[in-house]
Nucleic acid binder design. Structure first.
Lengths: 218, 218
DNA sequence: GTATGTTTCAAACAGTTGTTTAGATTTTGT
DNA sequence: ACAAAATCTAAACAACTGTTTGAAACATAC
């Protein structure tokens, strides 16, 4: 079926890198194909359109990510005892790390991409993810519920998204932050260290006592 | 000096709204000038270029924001007793609220914009903010330091940015989240309620015990 | 070998982009 | 009222966008 495996992947690689540090609209097909060293028309031939290319880039990443996430979640799901919030959050670390150094490019290419996608085009990507990867989100949510059974569903929902925001945002801008930190504190931190720094913050926030007031007249 | 106050502001208003829900690159000057009902060339005449327009939009917002923030921080700075983390974070609420309904457009226009700007163009905006509004950031950081004196500078730095990420990210996508929450839990929440929900999360995260392990062999 | 289907390629397409120009119109200072 | 400066306007500019085309090159099968 596929004679040359390369072209399609060359395009995906180039697109992923360029999207990450320029944005979607700011990256032209000509730039992509030039970097991939393929003909301009190939992207339309192989993917149909630029929009489909973007989706393809995401799919390739997310499939790799959820495969790793699945492996991490399974033992927690199988266990009889309820996991801690930290344990649940920790399922994200290894998959993120793997995704990070699978790409050759210096640092977390893809997180920038995710951050962009989330900000871009009125939540179009948020919807895409929630449709295509709803099952994994449900499993993750379920684990969190076991870890913190006293939180209401509504509160869970919000805090899950708070955490999601923090992770994506931090990882998306992590090189910039790392540079500043390196300059100001003479500490050089790896992605893993950033994640380990992030988890206690998230876990504590997630477990925080919900608002007591707001309408404390009762 | 200024004969007609309108044109420049009409452009700013239109640009702000359009940038917020389409993105910068995705919004053309023609779309802006059409919505503002002014001539295409006016934006180049008044602002010089599209890039300058973007900066002008931000400056207008940020100046309003820091004015409100300043008013909120002053009493805390004047007080002899150290503020709580919650109190410090609460200085953000009113300015954000004011900025939100100053604009006529339905919901938090500008937070989307901020979210975009942060994601966009390799932290170019992050740098801009840190340069132009460094004084306010320093005061805020100083307050936080009084509220949690036992945190190291390095840890402070990271957690400040964690919080920043959560706020921007949440507020940027808040309408989408509110829609989902409304559908799933039949609860309709205002921006203020979202913020009040956010603060305990942030405060708890900020106060969390830093990583003890990472290299717990000692 | 020819035939068949797939992939690559250069060129052109139609449309949009930000910016500039030069002339009209309006506002301002005196 | 007049001159000068500021503002607005329509039109055109060159550059770039994603996509399409039709022929060339390639691979595979018979």
């Amino acid at each position: 079926m596929t004679s040359k495996q390369s072209t399609k992947n060359r395009i995906l690689d180039a697109a992923e890198a360029l999207f990450a540090d320029r944005g979607f609209a700011e990256t032209s097909l000509r730039t992509i194909t030039h970097r991939a060293d393929v003909n301009l028309a190939s992207v339309n031939y192989h993917f149909g359109s630029k929009k489909s290319l973007i989706q393809a880039v995401f799919d390739r990443f997310l499939q790799g990510f959820v495969k790793g996430l699945d492996a991490e979640m399974k033992p927690l799901e199988a266990s009889q005892v309820a996991p801690s919030v930290e344990q649940v959050l920790h399922t994200l670390v290894k998959p993120l790390m793997t995704m990070d150094d699978r790409r050759h490019q210096g640092s977390s290419n893809f997180m920038k991409l995710l951050g962009r996608a989330y900000a871009e085009s009125q939540g179009h990507m948020r919807r895409f993810m929630q449709e295509h990867y709803a099952a994994y989100l449900a499993r993750f949510t379920s684990l969190l519920h076991r870890a913190a059974p006293d939180l209401t569903n509504s509160e869970m929902f919000w805090r899950l998204h708070f955490m999601l925001g923090t992770v994506i945002f931090t990882l998306a801008g992590s090189d910039a932050l790392r540079d500043i930190a390196a300059a100001d504190f003479r500490e050089s931190v790896s992605l893993e260290q950033t994640l380990e720094r992030l988890l206690p913050f998230l876990a504590a926030g997630f477990r925080a006592q919900p608002i007591n007031s707001l309408k404390n007249v009762s």
